[in-house]
Design a protein around this nucleic acid. Structure first.
Length: 285
DNA sequence: CTGCTCCCCTGGGAGC
DNA sequence: TGCTCCCAGGGGAGCA
């Protein structure tokens, strides 16, 4: 699930539940999904996992999330393909439940939160300071949801890459994944394989508009639910009902009714309409 | 720089 | 019901 809208939805959920609470217990499963390389000083793993810290902020950039505590410690979180966060207690029988945290306000326990990631493409990053977090995120482009449109247009200008490859590259714009790339390109009427250098500034602006409107609609809908995904509060998202091309290869284009094409772009499964998103061939001279 | 391939790992669905 | 095969929302490394 985890593209920008799902991560932003999670960020808001955690912000509501965790800010101002103290982490009074940390429980680790058998597998260590924690990257500790940013720590130069001696610290226990529990300390790196924010034990005894009070949560002050939940920060997001693209698909990356971070918990910040009052004493400066930071825990970066990436959901990868299969990462989930739920308000559930540790489960020793679940070999994919990697870390659980218990939160309290004053002397009152508020509950548990568990990070689970069966496929382990995601993970946690221990960071000693907000500066270390900035460094950790320094390669990321501006956030696709929060950044101003002209900044995003500028990021796309001059790139010699195919449109979809550029959208998926987190260094260009942070947060767009395979689903929202296809949805954005369809809404903008731009073919995924179209080189950006062949597009006018007006077309790039149209693409950025599409990216931002798709992302904000998806955030508003609580993200997309595919398979059995539910959020931290066990609620499904609903944006999948608004997917018009993703997962619909061979089905009718919602605009022209012709069958949608399925193919590979930037190494990823891609769906587009060759009529509504014509690949524009330039003369070369 | 750009694109392509392969890899990390597990689970779910399709098809037989 | 059980088995095999294929596929998947991400990202990074290595190579031409």
């Amino acid at each position: 699930m985890p593209e920008l809208p799902e991560v932003e939805h999670l960020r808001r959920t955690l912000e509501e539940r965790l800010v101002g609470t103290r982490i009074d217990a940390v429980r680790r499963g058998t597998f260590d999904v924690l990257d500790r390389s940013a720590y130069r000083t001696r610290a226990s793993v529990d300390r790196m996992l924010l034990a005894a810290g009070t949560v002050t902020e939940l920060r997001r950039r693209g698909k990356n999330l971070a918990l910040l505590t009052d004493d400066g410690r930071v825990l970066g979180m990436h959901l990868g393909m299969s990462g989930r966060v739920t308000f559930t207690p540790p489960d020793a029988d679940d070999r994919h439940a990697h870390v659980s945290w218990r939160f309290s306000s004053g002397t009152k326990t508020q509950g548990w939160m568990t990070f689970r990631d069966p496929r382990r493409f995601g993970g946690l990053t221990a960071l000693p300071s907000a500066e270390a977090l900035a460094d950790h995120w320094s390669e990321l482009g501006p956030d696709g949801f929060l950044a101003a449109k002209p900044e995003l247009v500028r990021r796309l200008q001059g790139l010699r890459r195919q449109a979809k490859a550029a959208l998926l590259d987190q260094r260009v714009i942070a947060g767009v994944g395979n689903i929202y790339a296809d949805e954005s390109l369809f809404r903008a009427g731009i073919h995924p394989l179209q080189p950006l250098t062949t597009l006018s500034n007006a077309a790039l602006a149209r693409l950025v508009d599409a990216v931002q409107s798709v992302l904000s609609a998806a955030v508003h809908a609580g993200g997309s639910t595919l398979r059995d995904y539910v959020d931290a509060n066990s609620q499904p998202g609903s944006f999948q009902e608004l997917h018009v091309v993703y997962g619909r290869a061979g089905m009718a284009c919602p605009e022209c009714g012709r069958p949608l094409d399925g193919f590979q772009a930037a190494g990823r499964t891609t769906v587009a309409c060759r009529h509504c998103q014509p690949l524009i061939h330039t003369s070369g001279r």
